[in-house]
Design a protein around this nucleic acid. Sequence first.
DNA 1: ATTATTCATCGTAATATTGCAATATAACAA
DNA 2: TTGTTATATTGCAATATTACGATGAATAAT
Lengths: 109, 109
Amino acid sequence: MGVSKTEIFTERQNEIALFAKVFGHPARVAILQHLFTIKTCVCGDLVNEIKLAQPTISQHLKELKKLGLIKGNIEGTRVCYCIDFKNWTAMKEVMHQFLDQDIPEPDCC
Amino acid sequence: MGVSKTEIFTERQNEIALFAKVFGHPARVAILQHLFTIKTCVCGDLVNEIKLAQPTISQHLKELKKLGLIKGNIEGTRVCYCIDFKNWTAMKEVMHQFLDQDIPEPDCC
DNA sequence: ATTATTCATCGTAATATTGCAATATAACAA
DNA sequence: TTGTTATATTGCAATATTACGATGAATAAT
């Protein structure tokens, strides 16, 4: 039906999926990478940096903000976005636990 | 348009997004967690384990197989799935690089 | 006050995803 | 062969996502 049956999964599984989903689009990956590499806020140039229309970028920023991974400060007509380090770190913890659930050696295959 | 403009992003950005997207559904997270915790192949019981219809599980397994994160061995009527450790490790490398692009301290915000 | 700039929101079209019933396929069992 | 079991595929309905033009709201510049 296009609707995920979140109720049959654990909260942790849904949490992982939500974080992963927001990284599941290259535009949002690009936005985050840009925010990290410039090591400060981004005010405006995302639209020049990433070749997508302004409303599209705005929508992607909204998704990132919804999960708390970035935050925006209004500065006059501009809005400056930056990583929310506290939340980013918390997210990293969750994702690492998932990705690093490695085992020594598989018994089969 | 519902279609991602992959051509305007780097290969790495698209790669990260593809991996993340496959984790962007709790069913696939649950499947992978199950494969890790039982420490061996899974033959069949995924449909009992996860409360989704068999075709739905099959479809999620296909997605995971498409990215090479799991592999399936046919054993009679059953198909046994397990993590592809080589590819899982490669994926982990990519995702870690993305998640750990931390910087000491932000200049702003 | 008027105009320009920046960003958000709305509306909408195109496409993708999720879920499942029905069906197909394949191997085994009797 | 016939039936049973396990998994895959097909087809489709419901919903979600992506992208962008048009518009709106807020501030800055003239």
